[in-house]
Amino acid sequence: MAQGVWTIAEQRDGEIRKITYEVASEGRRLADALGEELTVVLLGADIKDKGAELGNYGADRVLVADDPRLGTYTTDGYVAVISQLVKADDPAILLIGASSQGKDLSARLSANLGIGMAQDCTVFSVEDGNLVATRPIYAGKAYARLTFEDSWPQMATARPNVMSINEPDTSRSAEVVDASFSLDDSSLKTKVVDVVKDESGKVDLTEADKIVSGGRGMKGPENYKILEDFADLIGATVGASRSAVDAGWRPHSDQVGQTGKVVSPNLYVACGISGAIQHLAGMSTSKVIVAINKDEEAPIFQKADYGVVADLFDVVPALTEEVKKYL
């Protein structure tokens, strides 16, 4: 019978990514609810020495698949290995982070294993020994509570920035185990031929702790400087509404909304964004929402924890100065 909770770790260039801790922490909570063990699966090249530390976040066991061909993520390599490990060990629950990598991996893995999955979930619980996953649909205009039917492991991905990370407990350590698997070169049909790094040093919107976004009210691309000054000060990433992106003021990768990125920062500051339903859909799981808009009827105010009815060109520079007092 399927048993135990598994989470998949994510590393890049040999460094464990934050989503790994988020998902392992949530996995720990689910394992406690079931009274079962948590296994974190770590794939990489020369990665074994990173395994023990995952015990601090709640892993009882870290299953390490160490192979030069697993240093860089590829869909086929990772699916081939994880599929073998799952079939050999039969875990009850499989949690993955809904990062770019995790979404790609989970989608193909679900078909490979012939199991159901719930993508980009915001809440998990265990009911009658089964995983119940809650996830936004229609970009957050509704939420679906889901469970699994004759489908093992019960697989889901967790939205980045939503699951709280356990306080690391250095007295806890995990048993680090070498995974047994085979990987045939002929099954690796894809390869990464180049990696273009974003040199701006800016944190991706989906991982950002704070976001300052500008919409049509910014009036033009040149005015984003005032948002960038404020964002730099508080360590935020600058985002944009669809209308600002469609106007060519900001790149596509900056778009927050139903047809852009879905984000969950601690702080979301919407400047000159009216709050079209498709924008609200992309940021409504943010923890604190601030709206700055001169139109007091703007729908964004209905979602905001703090609303400022005034011209953003007056408020944002003043806010930048005021915030300096607290930093």
């Binding site: 199991i115 159901g116 999955m117 719930a118 119940v132 936004p136 649909i137 957050g140 205009k141 509704a142 939420y143 679906a144 509570r145 889901l146 469970t147 699994f148 039917e149 004759d150 489908s151 409504s284 929402i289 105010f301 209905q302 979602k303 905001a304 924890d305 703090y306 609303g307 400022v308 009815v309």
Partner: peptide, 21 residues
């Protein structure tokens, strides 16, 4: 044939009352 069953759909969670500064 669904492997994932819908228990229920709900409206988005309500946010607390906002403040106008």
């Amino acid at each position: 044939g669904r492997k994932v069953k819908i228990l229920e759909l709900t409206p988005p969670p309500k946010r607390g009352e906002g403040k106008i500064i």
